[in-house]
């Protein structure tokens, strides 16, 4: 079935059994419904979002899986970070409801037509959506929480772990 899609769209093979298709945001529903009708990529397994703050875009990957669960197709849509809005996929995939609700909460993306975009995991959240990269987590935590004393002598243990591992290896090799 992937051959059929390759004829019509510019599909790139990213890895064995993983394909990628980049599309414009205004053709999203059209292309996804065509894909789900004409191929066996019938399941929407997740919607992944990446915040490219340098390019001022959000890259959303709609990851579709075949009926046999052997191939994945990533359909990438890039939208502006400022007026981030997309049509909902509720009519195609009912499971998109929760995923879109989650993205709305974490990135502030508006999905037109999905009327469940209210509080999900974060209740009473008044700041900017926390997974946007302009949100400074550490500053927020320092402002809102005070830490228990004993935390400040918390050292970076990576160097020490490395040293001990090397030591253990040395002694093992010596024997």
């Amino acid at each position: 079935m992937i051959e059929f899609l390759k004829k019509h769209y510019e599909i790139v093979e990213k890895a064995p059994r993983l394909y990628k298709l980049q599309i414009e945001s205004d053709k999203l529903v059209e292309i996804l419904s065509s894909v789900s009708i004409n191929s066996n990529f019938i399941t929407l397994s997740q919607i992944a979002c990446t915040d490219w703050i340098e390019d001022e875009v959000f890259a959303l990957n709609y990851i579709l899986t075949t009926k046999e669960r052997d191939k994945n197709l990533m359909v990438e849509v890039r939208i502006s970070r400022v007026h981030c809005s997309l049509p909902t996929l509720l009519n195609l995939y009912p499971q998109a409801q929760v995923m879109e609700r989650d993205l709305h909460e974490m990135y502030g993306i508006n999905f037109r037509g999905n009327d469940t975009l209210y509080d999900f995991a974060l209740e009473n959240w008044n700041e900017i959506p926390p997974l946007r990269r302009e949100f400074d987590t550490l500053a927020y935590v320092n402002e809102h929480f005070d830490f228990r004393i004993g935390r400040e002598d918390n050292k970076d243990v990576k160097a020490e772990v490395k040293r001990r591992k090397a030591q253990a290896k040395e002694s093992k090799d010596g024997k």
């Binding site: 995991a121 926390p130 949100f135 987590t137 935590v141 929480f145 005070d146 830490f147």
Partner: peptide, 16 residues
Amino acid sequence: TINGGMYWDSYNTIKK
């Protein structure tokens, strides 16, 4: 529950 543990810098987890 004592000091946030590995979630010490999480925006949504209580520390104490």
